[in-house]
């Protein structure tokens, strides 16, 4: 197990280098960051030249990348377009997005698995058909549509919650955005759990559990659900990374100053340090989440052993 973890951690190094270089290259290809910095007005040529020198923009792409990487390892992620250190932006943005993601994951787990179990045990009945149809609708409608609709209904008309989230982003205000962020994955979790449960209800060990005279509740929770959740856990684990990155749309709709908001600003201003820095951290989150899922897999299914 220990060797396996070390090997996986070492595998992260090339992935990390490769992905940061790709992102760096893409942002570099976007255009001239100095022009973007000044917006519509043309900058004074001398000032522009000065900025170019400071940002090493006259060097080759490879050199710029090396300088950037060297700075990263000393903890310097560069400065954003407004002069703030990227690290301080991260410090304020990541906690907000992590909170939002956690709210979304809780929705996914609680509602998704509950619906999946109910429909899986009642295949072909009206509940099953109804939920299945609903998940199909949720999956096919884009997030920005459901986001704006729910914001209008619950935030503007019913006034159950604030339509836009305050900068401190308390959990109470993140409930609706969290639900919007979770919706599509929630539908997938429901379907995945349903299929898995339906498949396992006919398994021999479930029949054994019934033959042992266990109460139905115990058969379902301890024997059926425990086995059926293995693929679901995998999905949710990998989804955490996707949720954090995918929060861009949701964060825009509800005016949440999280990772998505900062990334959007960075792209708008061609600001390489912001974009590369944030995406690099997201890549790391994704890699670590994947590793944790694989380790959790072995805990859930003792037949899997890593060596």
């Amino acid at each position: 197990m220990g060797r396996y973890v070390i090997r996986r951690l070492l595998q992260m190094i090339p992935v990390f280098i490769g992905s940061t270089f790709l992102i760096f290259f893409m942002v570099y290809a976007l255009g001239d960051p100095v022009a973007a910095l000044f917006g519509d007005r043309a900058p004074d040529p001398a000032t522009a030249a000065q900025i170019r020198r400071d940002l090493h923009l006259n060097d080759s792409l490879g050199e710029q990348y090396l300088i950037y990487m060297r700075n990263i390892f000393t903890g310097d992620f560069g400065t954003a377009f407004n002069g703030q250190a990227v690290t301080s932006l991260m410090g304020s943005a990541f906690p907000v997005t992590i909170r939002l993601t956690l709210v979304a994951v809780v929705f996914e787990v609680v509602i998704g698995i509950a619906l999946g179990v109910v429909t899986g045990l009642r295949r072909g009945r009206p509940v099953d058909t109804g939920v299945l149809l609903l998940t199909l609708v949720v999956i096919s409608v884009p997030t920005f549509v459901t986001g704006y609709v729910l914001q209008y209904i619950f935030g503007v008309r019913l006034r159950w919650t604030a339509p836009s989230v305050s900068p401190s982003a308390p959990v109470g205000e993140l409930l609706l955005p969290g639900l919007v962020l979770a919706l599509v994955s929630l539908a997938y979790v429901t379907r995945l759990t349903r299929t898995s449960i339906a498949e396992n209800t006919r398994a021999d060990y479930v029949r054994t559990a019934v033959a042992k005279g266990l109460p139905q509740r115990r058969v379902i929770v301890r024997h059926l659900l425990r086995n059926s959740l293995i693929p679901v856990v995998t999905f949710i684990g990998t989804d955490i990374g996707a949720l954090m990155g995918g929060a861009i749309v949701t964060e825009r709709i509800f005016n949440i100053h999280g990772v998505g908001f900062q990334l959007y600003q960075g792209i708008l201003r061609n600001n390489a340090p912001t974009v590369v820095g944030f995406v690099t951290i997201l890549v790391l989150v994704f890699l670590i989440a994947n590793l944790l899922v694989d380790l959790l897999y072995a805990v859930l299914d003792p037949r899997i052993r890593y060596a």
Binding site: D204, Y205, R207, T208, A209, A211, G213, L214, R226, L300
Partner: peptide
């Protein structure tokens, strides 16, 4: 079930819970 009448199944590998 289980207490007064018990059953032994054919294939113990699939009849026992793997996890």
């Amino acid at each position: 079930r289980g207490a007064r009448i018990a059953m032994i199944f054919q294939d113990a590998l699939s009849a026992l819970n793997p996890v």
